[in-house]
Design a binder for these strands. Structure first.
Lengths: 154, 154
DNA sequence: GAATAACTATTATGATGAATAACAATTGTC
DNA sequence: GACAATTGTTATTCATCATAATAGTTATTC
């Protein structure tokens, strides 16, 4: 294996020109900015991006099962269990029995759960407006269209 | 705490209309698609997104320090150590001494490192072309501009 | 109708990404 | 020379996401 033989001066400025040409890189960096800000927005409500998404999907789809929720969140069922546990433990959702299938749980949001979701959604919308203020309406639409196109059917 | 009192029918189709209105949600889903595909592309080269980015930045910025690299990757210095350890252990990069500062390491890519980077970059560019095939050139430019704008100075 | 297959939620476990705290060695400053 | 700041490092923690294996239940098939 090659060894460092001689000393070497440090570089003055770091260039990421190569990576900047990659959509994946730009996507990740933009997402980091949004994620960091969103984290601060949701923290006072004791929610994270994932728990907010889960709570919203449950409130909007009363009676969906955990398998359906995991599918909608694009995560595996085992990883959903702790999330549902947490939301249920805080009294925000319920695991209801399903009439003809004693394996499944029909998830539903409680009144406190729906109230928290409403407050969180308002906060998230304000956060989005703030983040997207650097884009005009036309650019926002173009961004949304492109992202949805990339996501495709997945 | 409220208890589930009665059974409840499951829902037929799950709607994520609320979340789809959020740029952060669309961004994450699009990133997931790219990340999954990129993982498969880089796996044969024994690279991940992060190690590829690190190797590229080192090859493009000969002599940068770990602090500079961590800054460029937007990660904390402690998390960079294992990445540099791995790349160095595989003989792809070197930790060279810096003339006037015996604390710092000037990172540089070895010949095998530069060769692997070139192969990886070609694979990544092919992957990007495939993923972005759903967008016309105008849409790609709009996406890039919007993402860079959101990222801002961060 | 009994054996078998498939599905639901769960537990256990591991890999990865990313954060903070604490530290030793070194360098810079007053 | 004392003190502060910087560099890389270790240890630790948390969040996210994946797989394998399991118990209980439902569906299928012979």
């Amino acid at each position: 294996m090659t060894q460092p033989m001689h000393s070497m001066p440090a570089v003055d400025q770091v260039s990421d020109d190569t990576l900047r040409r990659l959509a994946g890189y730009n996507l990740k960096r933009a997402f980091n900015v949004i994620h960091a800000d969103l984290g601060e927005v949701l923290a006072p409500l004791d929610l994270r991006m994932l728990t907010f998404s889960a709570l919203t999907l449950i409130a909007d789809n009363n009676g969906l099962t955990q398998t359906q929720l995991a599918e909608a969140l694009a995560i595996k069922r085992p990883n959903l269990v702790v999330i549902v546990d947490e939301l249920e433990g805080r009294g925000l959702i319920l695991r209801n029995p399903v009439p003809n299938d004693r394996r499944a749980h029909a998830l539903s949001a409680t009144l406190p759960g729906r109230r928290l979701r409403d407050r969180a959604l308002a906060a998230v919308l304000a956060h989005e407006a703030r983040i997207l203020a650097v884009l005009d309406p036309q650019e926002r639409l173009a961004l949304e269209q492109a992202l949805i196109r990339i996501r495709g059917t997945a």
